[in-house]
Design a protein around this nucleic acid. Structure first.
Length: 278
DNA sequence: AACTGGACCTGCCGGC
DNA sequence: TGCCGGCAGGTCCAGT
């Protein structure tokens, strides 16, 4: 489900409700996520106040503080995996299938983590998120100045992989998943199977621009809803209407009319126009 | 160091 | 109608 735009959409929705809320309890209905949820989650977050919610790559971090104030912060690191979602509900609203974790809040609210495939993560830590092992080796954010054509060109020197898995590698740049990799590469005319080391710096400059463009537009549209993505207010995203290649195998390219193709690259289905992309 | 394939899960869709 | 295979938005790890 979520790539960066869907995670950012979720963050923005939660940011309207969570800051200032006090955690009054937790319910773990199924701890078997990609890693088991800490058995002592309740005692580690009970009574803490949610200070802020941030995003790093596809991770969300909730900063928690004690009411007293001078203790260091504690954090909930949350990853939505392929099918995860977070929503705010009224306290007594019934749970749904795959609602694995519930964080009870004051003002009769609750934060609910739902994840059918359970590839997501729900981690409590006293480490600053950027120092946590899950996040410490992440590459730049797409809008960081350090993410530029020269950087991509340099990093690609020793890579023999195709450019699509290259830009989907979170150590290279965060947030670009299977949908937006295909879309960005289409927009800048780079063939997804082209070897990363065989792309000129100028074309990488272009790729940086189109990655930013596609992600920004998708955030504007509230993300892409293929099957089940919902934001924190339970509304779908609308970017799927603007997808130029993803999931459009066999349809005509909107730019040149050629029939769009797909093929598996590095175990992931990849969509492109053989006429527009080299 | 970098790449590959497999593992982790459930739901849904199409074909028979 | 039901069963079965294939596929799905993401990482992570072991083996090479």
């Amino acid at each position: 489900m979520p790539e960066l735009p869907e995670v950012e959409t979720t963050r923005r929705g939660l940011a309207l409700h969570l800051p200032g809320r006090r955690i009054t309890g937790t319910r773990v209905h199924n701890a078997a996520l990609r890693r088991p949820v800490a058995g002592n989650l309740a005692e580690r977050v009970d009574g803490w106040r949610i200070e802020d919610i941030e995003r790093r790559g596809k991770y969300l971090s909730l900063e928690l503080r004690q009411e007293s104030g001078d203790e260091p912060s504690r954090y909930l690191l949350i990853h939505l995996g392929m099918t995860g979602s977070l929503r705010i509900d009224d306290h007594d609203r019934a749970l749904k299938k795959h609602d694995h974790i519930v964080i009870l809040l004051d003002q009769d609210l609750k934060l609910v983590f739902n994840d059918p495939r359970r590839f997501g993560l729900f981690v409590v830590t006293d480490l600053e998120p950027r120092r946590h092992p899950l996040l410490s080796r992440l590459g730049p954010e797409p809008w960081d100045r350090s993410f530029n054509g020269a950087y991509l060109y340099r990093v690609a020197r020793q890579r023999k992989v195709a450019v699509k898995p290259f830009v989907m590698d979170a150590r290279v740049v965060v947030g670009v998943g299977n949908i937006y990799a295909s879309e960005a590469l289409f927009r800048c005319g780079i063939h997804p199977a082209r070897i990363a080391a065989r792309i000129a710096e100028a074309r990488y400059e272009l790729l940086v621009e189109t990655v930013r463009e596609v992600l920004s537009e998708a955030i504007e549209a509230g993300g892409t809803t293929l099957r089940d993505f919902r934001n924190a207010e339970n509304q779908p995203g609308y970017f799927q209407q603007q997808l130029a290649v993803y999931g459009r195998t066999g349809s005509p390219c909107r730019r040149c009319g050629e029939v769009l193709r797909s093929r598996i690259i590095a175990q992931r289905n990849s969509f492109f126009c053989a006429g527009c992309q080299r």
